[in-house]
């Protein structure tokens, strides 16, 4: 899906948090949103999903506004928000909200949990799964809805190395299925492994949008150089 953002402005509490952002992303690759804390990465994801409305400007996915797309765009949050039910029931509930019949819900949930490597945890309560398993469950739930785009807000920020690697493998599976992924991350090594395009934000403004290799080879601003150096050392 092609994402077009034109002159996007978002204000809250009398402050401009997103200022005149314009970009086009029709990359089939995974796109990384980078920037320091407070740069507006999570905010931009929410705006792209339609969870927030911009004060000005517009966002279009294949020329359609986000709220018209329903489950074609889903989001995985930094802290997985799971229902107090089993892993399987969490996925089935998402499908129930989309009106899927019971038999289809069961089959799709089983496939989603298998994709995320959670087939052995189907009947366990989501609350007792490890952090990594919970994040993979959230991804499986998003995938179960057959979206064209999945937005991920720092999907591995709270995970240990092993759990983060498992989540990355799951994200790799999604990419192979042709799902467009936009994720925020502070882990540049992870971004290099997963993404083909980078959008760098600073204090609510777009600083650079480039292909992965070009972004690291030719940073467009000193702020980006400092960011990369800080992450490297």
């Amino acid at each position: 899906m092609k994402l077009e953002i034109q002159n996007l402005v978002y204000r809250a509490g009398g402050r401009t948090l997103m200022d005149d952002i314009s970009l086009v992303s029709d990359s089939a690759h995974c796109t990384a949103l980078l920037g320091a804390n407070g740069a507006g990465k999570s905010l931009l994801l929410r705006l792209c999903h339609g969870l927030l409305e911009p004060a000005a400007g517009r966002i279009r996915w294949d020329a359609r506004p986000p709220r018209e797309l329903g489950a074609a765009i889903t989001m995985v949050f930094q802290k997985p928000v799971l229902l107090r039910r089993s892993a399987r029931a969490n996925v089935e509930h998402a499908l129930y909200l989309q009106g899927a019949p019971r038999a289809a819900r069961r089959a799709r949930a089983a496939a989603a949990l298998e994709l995320a490597g959670l087939e052995d945890c189907m009947e366990r309560q989501a609350a007792v799964l490890s952090g990594g398993q919970q994040q993979r469950l959230a991804i499986a739930r998003a995938w179960a809805l057959k979206p064209a785009v999945i937005l991920m807000d720092e999907p591995t920020s709270k995970l240990d190395v092993r759990s983060a690697a498992q989540v990355e493998r799951t994200i790799g599976e999604l990419r192979r299925e042709g799902i467009k992924i936009i994720l925020t991350s502070h882990n540049l090594a992870q971004v290099r492994r997963l993404c083909g395009e980078v959008v760098f934000l600073h204090e609510g403004r777009l600083v650079q949008q480039d292909a992965m290799d070009d972004f690291f080879a030719r940073p467009a601003d000193d702020i980006i150089c400092e960011f990369i150096e800080a992450q490297t050392f």
Partner: peptide, 24 residues
């Protein structure tokens, strides 16, 4: 407060959200 963004993200509307949260 905890669930509404996630439920909206999954396409839940007001009635379905109320039902879900009553059960939760």
């Amino acid at each position: 407060d905890e669930y509404h963004e996630q439920l909206r993200s999954l396409g839940s509307r007001t009635l379905a959200t109320a039902r879900t949260l009553l059960w939760e």
